[in-house]
Nucleic acid binder design. Structure first.
Length: 579
RNA sequence: GGACCUGUGGUGCAGCUCGGAGUGCACGCCGCCCUGUCAAGGCGGAGGUCGCGGGUUCAAAUCCCGUCAGGUCCGCCA
């Protein structure tokens, strides 16, 4: 305890009473967790605050029940022999000769606030203020606060300056769908809420703040998931006169400090892997390194194969330990999943003592069968899944099956971090035939690839890097383009004309004409890091007031209609009825 | 936009496959009893449009169709 927990109403918090306080007459405040009545002359009250529970012994009846807010004044006493409760942190002591002051009565809560009962999440969200009173939410949000202040301390110590940036920003249509805010003073015109402080922080670099950070709220009007809310929080970092390695160092130190603060253990040094290697070995750009099951390459073995289903530019295999025992229905489900991901099919081979068992087995040449049987670390009783297709698709399909078959829950240790580097500059081509930026259009290409920007753009790598933890993308960053000539070439490659660039990012490009330093940055999701470090698989568990998957708030009822007057002031037409 | 899972007193479940009276369990709630309990105990009681609508059937919590809500995922998330 670094602060004085006493207030005008209390001397100690409930969970902090110990034998050392014996004999003191003290007051505690909290909620009644439990009442155990033994007739007119003896009542036990468990009084709870976030630090824990203490037993109060009341000589006589007392008119309280669960969740009443009380101030209890009593004498800290060692419990009589035989009544010590080992399961309670304060179980050596109790408050005796108690006077109970009811600070507020309470109705019976809609669900029990103990930890034993799993409550439907919709009910928890409707009564979130009660859910927050429960121990798991207390632990999650307080751990998140610890992460926040550890990140701040680390970046402060590394010479970073915390700066806030606007929530009301200008529309820059690109990337994620933006939340729109109508302007009252300028009818018909709009602010947008920032998807991230990306452009603002680059302007801070031009402004001479050579190490900036912010714990920033970001807003994206995209569909929600277990790891995605409309609004989420990023540790946003940008620095000048740095390289990719400098930024990765800053972030690695901050994340390591936060992880150590929570788990008590320093994470091992974060491995670095190229995007190409991650795709080749794990079939994804966010590999879960907690388990093996790496993809194997069978392309050479199947070059010129006679099996039509396996004739493709790329043949990849995945060994599933013990998978030979899978029922046909399970194999069918895997095949279904592979098809849903875009594969034409999924070939499976059960590895038995006597050879391969599969509908395709008798069509294989001996060399092909041997290659499958030898894949990875072969053992009888395994299953080998094979996808033959274009290279990236084959890898991604098996990468997804690898996670389905092998990944533990994300919040389950150990924690395995990885830096993924050398991303492709462009993801592919959109409907109009223009290249699509893999990161964002201000990302610097790898220097030695720059000469191919026009001739072979899809082969150009970028100086972008992701931080991955247990198969979740924590965040990403890049070295930014600070030179107008390179920026023009990238815009041109993306099909963004000079006029369009000026309209969208004019103020940024203008700023870059007045001496932009070389700079680079990163941003990672504090919601995701917090969820993983507290052992949850869903970021709603580390957010005080989250939205449902359909974007509603079950407690406030948001979103809601606004009044006709509000609409008039904003010069917005009343919306047409739904349907 | 799409796929799948879930919905039964305040809470958590069972019942649904194979239709037969809202049947059951635990917690909570209300009343009474109880001087060392701590998931206290004992006795009694209240509490349900089985998410909603339609269909099949002599009969629907159960089968079928639709719909709403919550969740997981695909698309989307530079």
């Amino acid at each position: 305890m670094t602060h004085d927990e006493a207030t005008s109403l209390r001397d100690l918090q409930c969970g902090h009473l110990t034998r050392g306080d014996e004999g003191r007459r003290v007051s505690v405040c909290g909620w009644v967790a439990k009442r155990r009545e033994h007739g007119e002359h003896l009542v036990f009250l468990d009084v709870r605050d976030w630090t824990g529970v203490v037993q109060a012994v009341v000589p006589g009846s007392v008119d309280v029940r669960a969740e009443y807010v009380v101030r209890v004044t009593g004498t800290v006493s060692a419990r009589p022999a035989g009544t010590v409760n080992e399961r309670l942190a304060t179980g050596q002591v109790e408050l005796t000769d108690c006077e109970v002051e009811v600070l507020n009565a309470a109705e019976a809560p809609p669900f029990p606030l103990d930890e034993r009962t799993e409550i439907d999440e919709a009910v928890r969200l409707r009564f979130r203020y009660l859910d927050l009173r429960r121990e798991p939410m207390q632990r999650s949000l307080r751990t998140r606060a610890l992460i926040n202040r550890t990140l701040r301390a680390s970046l402060d110590a590394q010479g970073f300056c915390e700066i806030e940036t606007p929530l009301l920003w200008a529309p820059t249509p690109e990337g994620a769908r933006e939340f729109v805010v109508p302007s009252r003073l300028h009818p018909g015109e709009f602010y947008v809420l920032p998807q991230s402080p990306q452009i603002a922080k680059q302007l801070l670099m031009v402004g001479g703040f050579d190490r900036y950070y912010q714990i920033a709220r970001c807003l994206r009007d995209e569909d929600l998931r277990a790891d995605r809310q409309f609004e989420f929080t990023q540790l946003d970092v940008e620095a000048s006169f740095v390289t990719q390695d400098d930024v990765m160092g800053f972030v690695s130190r901050a994340v390591a400090a936060a992880a150590q603060a929570v788990t008590g253990e320093a994470p091992e040094a974060i491995a670095t892997m190229s995007w190409a290697e991650a795709l080749e070995r794990f079939g994804t750009d966010k590999p879960d390194l907690r388990f093996a099951m790496e993809l194997g390459d069978l392309t050479a073995a199947f070059a010129g194969t006679g099996v039509a289903a396996l004739a493709a530019p790329c043949v990849k295999g995945l060994r599933v330990p013990g998978g030979a025992a899978f029922a046909r229905s399970r194999l069918d489900a895997l095949t279904e999943q592979a098809r849903a991901l875009g594969a034409k099919g999924l070939a499976w081979f059960k590895v038995g003592e006597g050879g391969l068992e599969s509908p395709l087995a008798r069509h294989l040449s001996p060399a092909e069968a041997a290659a499958i049987a030898a894949l990875d670390a072969p053992a009888p009783g395994d299953l080998v899944l094979v996808v033959a297709d274009e290279h990236d698709l084959a890898c991604r399909v098996l990468g997804a099956l690898r996670v389905t078959l092998g990944a533990p829950p994300v919040g389950e240790g150990p924690y395995r971090y990885a830096w993924i580097t050398e991303f492709p500059m462009f993801e592919g081509v959109d409907e109009d035939g223009n290249l699509v930026a893999a990161h964002h259009p201000f990302t610097m290409p790898v220097a030695e690839d720059l000469e191919r920007l026009e001739s072979d753009p899809l082969s150009v790598r970028s100086q972008a890097y992701d931080l991955v933890l247990n198969g979740w993308e924590l965040g990403s960053g890049s070295v930014r383009i600070h030179r107008a000539d390179i920026q023009s070439r990238v815009f041109r490659a993306l099909g963004i004309g000079e006029e369009e660039a000026a309209a969208r990012f004019g103020f940024l490009l203008g700023a870059f004409r007045y001496g932009a330093p070389p700079h680079a940055g990163f941003a990672f999701g504090i919601d995701r890091l917090s969820a993983i470090l507290v052992g949850e698989e869903n970021i709603r568990e580390v957010i005080a007031f989250p939205k449902t998957q359909s974007g509603t708030d079950l407690m406030t009822g948001a979103p809601k209609a606004i009044t006709a007057r509000q609409l008039r002031e904003l010069r917005l037409p009343a919306p047409a009825p739904r349907g």
